[in-house]
Design a protein around this nucleic acid. Structure first.
Lengths: 189, 189
DNA sequence: CTTAAAACCGAATCTATATTCAGTTAATTC
DNA sequence: GAATTAACTGAATATAGATTCGGTTTTAAG
């Protein structure tokens, strides 16, 4: 008997990512993915039960390999430094992996996103939440609810990265520095 | 001969908005819109050429009646006051018109959005751009590019409003005040 | 009151794609 | 190296839903 080929699964994922970059999530068909991955359309169903499952699995992988891997092992650093490092990493990741980020962003708001996948999303936010709490205890972060502070950071980084990518502005250390200052000015006590 | 019934068009728009609130943009069918608006599906095509046109027209209307109407006639006020008033209005609008905002948000990232409609979006941003420029001249706003400042304001208000709505948190004057302070701390010189 | 034209209806059509499946190929095991 | 079994193929199927269209109703105009 024959075994599944892991490289084939990679090829399928890559095809999906590339096609999102080229066409946008909603114009992608299973046939197009199959063609780009150099397999027959029926083969996709050996590796995935459905289009929905394919995308959800890809999304989860990108979140864990991309976003979560961004959280550095920097627990020994002061709060502000930790936030600064994370800020820099996230911005870097988001502006240098255009196709992946496009996929993640489009999929996040698509009807295909399933309930299970939604949970993964919160891991990253939870980490930020803990940092902010620590910052409040040290009296260096404004004593305001997470509901008010987190949308600032999350909304800014998301919008900023998309804006820069969209306008073809290359991320420079100077931009990273300036934007973090803005962000910190916003939340510092 | 018979004339088009303007109330019917309203009913169609309202049906589309309500259905977005109930089901999300992507689950909406022309038949469902027709049913909720109490017309036959064929009738939709008397008023609109296609589903795409229907949604684009609705989106444009919501932008101009909603978002643009938010820009108050406050040109005589100091920059900071103007920004504060706009901030308050946008937040108020975004949290108290859940179905409309859901539609606008979902449609904004949907494949149906056409090029022409995209242009309308920028009117609001242009207004903010002019305010920031004036603020920089007065040395009260950080001397940084719009590409860096605008995503902060836009990303924050967008994310914040969605977050509050999603978590069922009612917008209070205190939240408006606190969030504007955050925003202003971020951009002030 | 008549007539013409356009709104209106909703069943039938058309289309795009996700998914299936019968047949074929390749790799694993003994 | 034969048998077995799962991967693999891609044409055929199934289906959802946008759009069309022939027939019907309404109303403005004369």
């Amino acid at each position: 008997m024959r075994l599944k080929d892991n490289k084939k699964k990679e090829a399928i994922f890559n095809a999906a990512i590339e096609l999102t970059g080229e066409l946008g999530l909603n114009k992608i068909t299973m046939s197009a993915i199959a063609e780009k991955a150099q397999v027959a359309s029926g083969t996709l169903y050996i590796y995935f039960n459905s289009k929905e499952q394919l995308f959800n699995e890809l999304y989860k992988r990108l979140i864990s390999e991309g976003t979560l891997a961004i959280l550095p092992a920097v627990e020994h650093l002061p709060i502000k430094q930790q936030l600064s490092t994370i800020w820099s990493n996230v911005l870097e990741f988001r502006t240098s992996n255009a196709a992946e980020v496009a996929f993640m962003h489009e999929f996040r708001y698509s009807p295909l996103l399933d309930d299970d996948t939604k949970k993964i999303d919160s891991l990253f936010v939870d980490h930020i939440r803990r940092l902010l709490e620590a910052g409040r205890e040290e009296l260096i972060v404004k004593n305001l609810s997470d509901d008010i502070l987190i949308p600032l950071m999350y909304g800014y980084v998301d919008n900023l990265a998309r804006h820069l990518t969209h306008k073809g502005i290359k991320l420079t250390p100077e931009i990273v520095r300036q934007t973090f200052i803005i962000c910190w000015d916003a939340i510092k006590a």
